[in-house]
């Protein structure tokens, strides 16, 4: 099941300078009851974004028309907690193709890579520079190049490299997914299965 190809993203960004954003905040459990991957974006950051009567919370960044773009920038340890892929789906469904943080929780990072959202880990210092650039100008643009593995603050020209393994980079560049790969080595797997004791 291929997904959109990712190459270069040049866009404004939405800042969320909070640490330890867990996946229960990204999408609370009560919104995980769908049986298809549809509509999760409506409930992205549900309890930070809306009051209990469903009216928007004016001070939350997603409700502030000043901020928009395809990059979500979060504080350290973004995506901790529950393994729910719904969190990554909600981020994607809201139009984000990239999340930048100084540190990601493992499962969230993996989920993002599996659905075509690029997790970009930068240094704590560079993260602060990104937040500062958005604060100075909400229309500040950033460039994320997967090919060059580099994120650039276009207003200042400052950039920083980021890591991604070659395999996942290839998948994202070409829009391939892991199951396509695994089905290609199905015979190896079947042979291996015969030798397992359990």
């Amino acid at each position: 099941m291929a997904y959109d190809k990712f190459n270069i993203l040049r866009t404004t960004a939405v800042p969320l300078p909070i640490e330890n954003v867990d996946t229960d905040q990204i999408i609370p459990a009560r919104f995980l009851k769908a049986t298809e991957r549809k509509g999760f974006g409506d409930n992205l950051f549900r309890d930070w974004r809306y009051n209990q009567d469903g009216t928007p919370k004016e001070d939350f960044v997603l409700n502030n028309p000043k901020y928009k773009g395809k990059i979500l920038v979060g504080g350290a340890n973004f995506g901790s907690g529950s393994s729910r892929e719904h969190a990554a789906w909600a981020v994607y469904d809201c139009g984000f193709r990239c999340v930048i943080s100084s540190f990601f929780a493992d499962i969230f990072r993996g989920n993002c890579l599996n659905i075509g959202v690029l997790p970009v880990q930068v240094s704590a210092e560079f993260l602060q520079k990104i937040f500062a650039a958005i604060e100075a100008d909400p229309n500040a643009e950033f460039e994320v190049s997967l090919e060059d593995q580099k994120v650039t603050i276009l207003a200042t020209g400052e950039s920083e490299p980021f890591d991604i393994n070659d395999y996942k980079k290839g998948n994202m560049t070409n829009g391939f997914d892991d199951i396509d790969y695994l089905l290609n080595i199905k015979e190896n797997i079947q042979e291996f299965a015969k030798s397992t004791p359990l």
Partner: peptide, 20 residues
């Protein structure tokens, strides 16, 4: 260990998972 839904599909389909 816990996995996401894409990985659940992966394991259902191939009994394998890709993990660093």
């Amino acid at each position: 260990f816990g996995i996401g839904t894409s990985e659940v599909e992966m394991v259902l389909a191939t009994q394998c998972i890709m993990q660093p």
